[in-house]
Design a binder for these strands. Structure first.
Lengths: 103, 103
DNA sequence: ATTATATATAACAAAATTTTAATGTAAGCA
DNA sequence: TGCTTACATTAAAATTTTGTTATATATAAT
């Protein structure tokens, strides 16, 4: 992972809410109500539920989720009118591994 | 290490120059000219040399070094008219360990 | 077809960050 | 003492980030 990618992730994670979101998504069962339609968290958690938990406005969270997606931290999946967001564990692991080596 | 400390370090490392400085200080011999007065890098590298390498103005680097110090990443040592800056390896290791566990 | 829901985008205001020029301070040297 | 060097602080401008309201879009429900 190159320096630009590291820097973009650092920026994404230099905001309280975005850092919280990444942690919440580690354990959707513990942090979110169940998805009535889907019945599982295989694609992560829908934007609506993330927004509810954050207390911020819908456009703010939509933007934050987009920032985290662009940084590679989240994988969005559109399903009907919902977009689910899942952690990108591979990128997160690579990020920490690179920090370990280069920081 | 608590979330506020993590967040402050993430902010400190979300700037290209500051991230570079932390990396440069990993190997002063490779990245900086020798200290004529001191003859060693036991206290790290003086602000002047860091500024020269960065290409940014003196006040900018002074401010950046202060930000990194406040985040716990650097240890400053005043010695005559020079201030030397050394990596705080303990905090850096703790930071990465916490990311490993909580991110 | 109309209405409601989930999300995205646009436009914008407030706050924080980035960076410089100017100035202050403290130590060393002529 | 006066000059120079290293660094810190202040003031200020330009840019970025944060977050909102308003609006658009797409899907689902009635």
């Amino acid at each position: 992972m190159n320096s630009d990618a590291i820097l973009e992730i650092n920026k994404a994670l230099s905001n309280t809410t975005r850092l919280e979101i990444l942690k919440w998504l580690k354990d959707p069962e513990a942090n979110f109500p169940p998805h009535l339609e889907l019945g599982h968290f295989d694609f992560g958690v829908c934007g609506q539920n993330i927004q509810d938990k954050s207390g911020l406005s819908q456009p703010t969270i939509s933007h934050y989720l987009s920032v985290m997606h662009k940084a590679g931290l989240l994988i969005p999946t559109r399903h009907g009118k919902w977009t689910y967001f899942k952690r990108n564990e591979k990128i997160i692991a690579e990020y920490i591994k690179t920090l370990n080596k280069e920081l």
